[in-house]
Amino acid sequence: MPEILCSENKDVTENCLDIINLMILSDYWNSVKDDIESESKERDYYASRLGKANISVMMLNPVTGEWNGKWTIYDYRANGSFIQLYVPVSLFNATSGEYSFGIMDIKVYR
């Protein structure tokens, strides 16, 4: 998902996600979650690449130790079992210039 990576002058920072882009993507998935039957080019685009999975990102404030943000950036759930994976990532806040710590929670349905 290159659209959510942190980039500056086309230079991409590895393992880093831009919080503003996460919010935009999360808003999209929130808007379509109750309307699963309707046609959506965007949903089809992601589904053809990611399949049946659910991906969310949680943000930890490293100074206070509190979780203070969660965004669902892909949601195509299925019934049945799944494999869960946690990937540590950096989260860039362009407003404050801070890089926080985050966890990408990936559930892949079988």
Partner: peptide
Amino acid sequence: IDAIKNIRVS
């Protein structure tokens, strides 16, 4: 390690 290395806090 990478995620910790990138941290920038106030």
